[in-house]
Write a protein that binds this DNA or RNA. Structure first.
Lengths: 347, 347
DNA sequence: CCAAAATTGAGGTACGTGCCTCATGACTTA
DNA sequence: TAAGTCATGAGGCACGTACCTCAATTTTGG
């Protein structure tokens, strides 16, 4: 009750006074406009530091002629997780609009790095402040990201990071930890030991190989009675995965568990039901989508590890805000937790 | 690209024009100021509805003389989860300040309903817009909530709801689902069956009894080979819980699992280690705090179910914002997920 | 019907920033 | 030295809302 009323917000006026320059000059420095001598700019930066000034993002957005424009590039195809990412963007769009942020989504054919690079290249800094991409590692993307950054568009990676690029921020889960968690659960589910098969989409995908790495780590460290089969590659497709699992179950009638660290879960569930072994095996899959929900409800899947697409989009939006308008070069976001779902805590 | 540039934000000016009244009148209606005839107010409300107007929260906060003031009442005592709630508030305080929200915390002696009621009664609508309370069900609190609401302070419940009161919103997890999840995990951990003990803090606490309910549901429905011992009451205290568990382990040498749905986990872990049975039993506890983290790392606890205090505070802040400044009577928030933590996905 | 009270309108300032114009002064270059 | 370029200052309008004052109008009560 003592001094909270007395303390006032630090504004650009204070910065101007402290730096001994005019408001116009502070504005030029803050918004990177030309026409300021290096020495003068430095005086302003110092004043900003010493006063602890940070731009009022809300006032800033209110004064701008146009809203903050964020474009999400999300893979298209049969991957249901990507669909739920896109849906999450749509769901938040109206709420974001109230905060003067305009979100748009572009679906890119999965793994079509050329299309993504072209999309990034086509972005005009005049109507796009920030791009959020879900991509695999590829030199052409790296180049496109750097080019976009140079044009003044902040680029952020989602789900899978792009090391070595100029991306300003990454939002996603710790996939090694996800793999470890799967192993830890399966180990406890099978105290008598047994054979467990691992299915991946493609080991060239960073997130998949990381999950496998974590899974192997814990299995060999803590559960030596469990024998690992695979990894088999289902290419993230339902039909391929279904055939794979059908053959697997036929060849190994005494299989105790399956860990599918990729997509294609509709096929997994079908194969389990078709062979009559749903419920007999302990099964762990990834991403809470329609097929995996159905697997949980029907007893074919025991546990689903989820990336929480809604949370990822929420954090991406928050990060875009402070990335584009904030003063700080580095942005802090809440970490995305790995969601663990059983039939009993389905939302 | 067609009409997005053309569409403009709906403002109070538009409402005034549509309702055929002046800006001042719209302002009086929006902010509940006196001096407007019922018939006129209705015209304004109609215009708001038909135009889909919603107040620009950022502009609104900028124009207000003072920041939005939110007070959190959080129980004090030995309960570590409550501490982490309070820490979460502190952590978000500076960030919230940038959004013109001033957060403050008041610790109330646990279960001291008189103190909480007094705290609520002492709130002055002049320097408090919203109160967030963590409480048990008690008539005196009910009355205090209603009184605060009448004075124009929005009250929100956190963690545990207060049915029958005027609280504007509730933020918390589905505790029945949490109990079901614990049972489902323990059931899968113990395919051979066995005896499992349940420990609660007090069955008079709504969240505890809900967890027990869910736990029993699934155990009896799906895992009939598991025998349930208890519930025992540890009063959420470390020492009491430690004694309880020590006796339990001595009396039932062949115990297979423990579900502690209350607090006092430091005692639980000590007793497990002291008896040398850490790692032999499957153990599930609640809330990711220092003692439970240590339990996970040391192998005494297998799984921790967590309410995600950070997420709860985040949603509480967002809810307070739209509750106090928003037009809508009802507020939508993201549901709080039950976090499931093993040693392998500790953050 | 008249005075008092209640209701409504008109218009201003403020919040903190973005963005624009114009003027001034200093410095460079032919 | 004259003309040009560059750096900076001064100031204003805008965004959408809150909150204030003062006058004008309508309604109410006796």
């Amino acid at each position: 009750m003592s001094d909270e009323a007395a303390r006032r917000r630090v504004t650009v006026h204070d910065v101007a006074r402290a730096a001994g320059v005019s408001l116009a000059t502070v504005d030029r420095v803050l918004n990177g406009r030309p026409g300021v001598r290096a020495a003068t700019a430095e005086k302003v930066e110092e004043a900003i530091q010493s006063l602890g000034f940070s731009r009022d993002v809300n006032a800033s957005l209110m004064a701008r002629a146009r809203d903050l424009n964020v474009v999400f590039f999300i893979p298209d195809g049969s991957n249901e997780f990507m669909d739920s990412l896109a849906e999450a963007v749509t769901r938040r769009a109206s709420q974001a609009l109230a905060d003067r942020m305009y979100l748009s989504t572009r679906r890119i054919r999965a793994l079509d790095t050329g299309a993504l690079a072209a999309g990034l290249d086509a972005l005009n800094p005049h109507d796009c402040d920030c791009a959020v991409i879900v991509t695999s590692e590829d030199p052409s993307i790296l180049a496109a990201v750097d080019s976009a950054t140079r044009r003044g568009i902040a680029v952020m990676t989602l789900v899978s990071d792009l090391p070595g690029s100029n991306r300003r921020h990454f939002i996603g889960v710790d996939n090694v930890a996800a793999g470890r968690t799967a192993a830890s659960l399966l180990g406890r589910f099978l105290p008598q030991g047994g054979a467990v098969a691992v299915i991946a989409g493609s080991l060239h995908l960073r997130d998949h190989s990381e999950r496998l790495e974590g899974f192997r780590q814990i299995l060999s460290a803590d559960f030596s009675t469990i024998e690992l089969l695979g990894p088999l590659e289902g290419h993230d497709e339902s039909l391929a995965t279904e055939a794979l699992v059908a053959k697997l179950l036929a060849d190994h009638p005494n299989l105790s568990g399956i860990y599918n660290l990729g997509a294609g879960n509709a096929g997994l569930v079908s194969a389990l039901h078709a062979s009559g072994s749903a419920g007999r095996l302990r099964v762990i899959a990834h991403e809470l989508t329609e097929p995996t929900r159905e697997g949980l409800r029907g007893g074919a899947i025991d546990v689903v590890l989820d990336q929480n697409p809604d949370g990822e989009i929420r954090e991406a939006i928050a990060a875009a805000r402070s990335l584009v308008l904030g003063t700080a070069r580095h942005v802090a976001t809440d970490p995305i937790e790995i969601g663990i779902f059983l039939r009993d805590n389905l939302r």
